[in-house]
Nucleic acid binder design. Structure first.
Lengths: 167, 167
DNA sequence: TTTAACTTTCAATAATTACTGAAAATTAAA
DNA sequence: TTTAATTTTCAGTAATTATTGAAAGTTAAA
């Protein structure tokens, strides 16, 4: 397989993984593109490669910056902005996990705990409170599993792996 | 807050958590409803409570059965089918994790590993292969973290928690 | 069998989500 | 300053995803 063909397939694959986890496809593809680029890319570069509009590039690049996984970079002699993705994939995983915990898990735990305060001692009410308690417990458990994962420093493992592969 | 109000809020909250993780909202809501029900529910029951069509109920109940988190139950003297959700929330988490691993993570690892075979030794090509290797490594790592999570038997922890809460 | 209760399917449609492109806003060079 | 390059915004539209409802299919009671 030829390099550009492989790159395309990689960008497609990453986009559909994102979609199945509720992340915008284009956002993932822009990120995927920046990840494998050897140099910073401008909005134009991204527009051309992914064949998407300027507005779309702008929105998704902002979102990626907001997620903390892409940053602006200035290129000497150039007026326009360029973008780069942090190439450290373990860092990437940690960052995504951190954001999703904050955005999507923690608010739910809060609501579940709030709802448990309902005052009802019928069988139905007790059953309801038991399920809420269990859901909240498991959600909290998952949340702390993720917390541990992002705290553990696996950098050495990854850099080690890459070194071995280079041989 | 009154019980039905709390139930509604819970069903809504669970539905939107699902949406943000790429799972159909109604599917999550049907499941949420079955979870807090003290008795098996028929298609009609679900239609009425969630105000959705028969077709929609049918499709989503099938999907839940396919995911292994809901099952049919026969009620004596009734012709039609009834459904129940397994009330064990840790089991639920394990089952969902297992399915998503199989459906959405493992196929991606396979593609990434396949693409790494591309034969190209330009700087661009090497960079590409390095990123693919790292992505594959981290994805595999996450996959095995999840594997460990579902293997660990945390049942005692959950049942213990519930007991404490009942006091 | 026949009949009726019940379930499934899926084309049509609705709802949601994502994208475009051009106008407005911003930035910095002239 | 002016001017031109660049970025941002967002109303309109396109694409995708989810839902309905009625017809076809299935099952079991009569």
């Amino acid at each position: 397989m030829e390099l550009n063909e492989a790159k395309n397939k990689y960008i497609q694959t990453w986009g559909s993984l994102a979609t199945s986890w509720g992340i915008n496809k284009t956002m993932a593809q822009v990120h995927a593109l920046l990840l494998v680029s050897t140099k910073p890319l401008s909005a134009e570069d991204i527009m051309e490669t992914l064949k998407i509009s300027r507005g779309n590039v702008n929105m998704n690049v902002r979102a990626l910056i907001d997620w903390g996984i892409v940053s602006k970079e200035f290129v000497v002699g150039e007026r326009k902005e360029f973008f780069v993705a942090d190439k450290d994939i373990w860092e990437l995983f940690k960052q995504i996990t951190k954001e999703r915990k904050k955005r999507e898990i923690e608010p739910v735990i809060k609501v579940l705990d709030e709802l448990q305060k309902v005052d009802d001692s019928t069988e139905e009410g007790e059953q309801f409170k038991k399920v809420l308690g269990d859901l909240s417990f498991v959600t909290t458990k998952v949340n702390s599993m993720l917390e541990n994962a992002i705290k553990a420093d696996e950098h050495w493992l990854l850099s080690n792996f890459t070194k071995i592969m280079k041989k």
